[in-house]
Design a protein around this nucleic acid. Sequence first.
DNA 1: CTCTGTTGTGTTACTCTATAACATCTGTCA
DNA 2: TGACAGATGTTATAGAGTAACACAACAGAG
Lengths: 133, 133
Amino acid sequence: MTSSSSLTKNQKLVLDALEKEKGPLSAYSILDRLRDDGLRAPLQVYRALDKLLDLQLVHRLESLNAFVACAHPHCHASHMIAFGICETCGQVWEFSDDVVRDRLMGWAESHDFKPSKTTIEMKGVCADCRAAG
Amino acid sequence: MTSSSSLTKNQKLVLDALEKEKGPLSAYSILDRLRDDGLRAPLQVYRALDKLLDLQLVHRLESLNAFVACAHPHCHASHMIAFGICETCGQVWEFSDDVVRDRLMGWAESHDFKPSKTTIEMKGVCADCRAAG
DNA sequence: CTCTGTTGTGTTACTCTATAACATCTGTCA
DNA sequence: TGACAGATGTTATAGAGTAACACAACAGAG
Ligand SMILES: [Zn+2]
Ligand SMILES: [Zn+2]
Ligand SMILES: [Zn+2]
Ligand SMILES: [Zn+2]
């Protein structure tokens, strides 16, 4: 089995913590939420996150040093994913755009550059927060 | 004056250090290179970097926690900048693509999201390093 | 069944990245 | 001159991530 049914205890705990949260969490925030479940050291969280990132069940937001549960599990095997991140409420939107991907891949090809991982993150203010002003 | 002629001593030191380097540097690496020039604490570097980032003379690479001198100073006031980053040699290419910008702005408009800062970073292996393979 | 390799766990200690708080200094402008 | 904004210097601390080592669980080969 390739997905969450084969997760270990710690991996499930970390994934659950992220899925319960509307926004991203830092590794240390996750740790704090899981102390009552027996987790004691950062490394326990980071190891679980490594696996979850491999499985694409979780994404890392580079500009926040934080992690978020995938919004569309199993749906973007090798996609180039983009994120909208509200700086006010912390909510995250996950999307992908084939035109963006093609343009970036085009730049890579024209420069003989072989991309392995691409980060696209838009920080700003979401509709709700603007309305709440 | 709006540019490098008005920089202070520390700001010039930090900018020089980044311009001398072909690739990105962490704040602490910058500090190490500037100890002989009198810098002693991380904060001195971070404060200079803050100003240089404001002036767009330096860019921060979120996926590396590192900084790089702008390749085209004065040329992209409000542009959305993308980076290609070689994971082997560390070299960085700075470019922008209007189509990518338009697509991302389009997503933002359609979601009533007001972006303030966008990060686009492609990590991979450059032509030279692939040839040297 | 036992050996063995692989993966996950737990723990301690550590490095690297970034900021808080406070005092001082320097220039600009009224 | 006085007042303010911005830059500086220093110490201490917070936040993010990894190294190293020992042990447990489990699957497959012989
Ligand atoms: Zn996803
Ligand atoms: Zn919001
Ligand atoms: Zn630039
Ligand atoms: Zn290279």
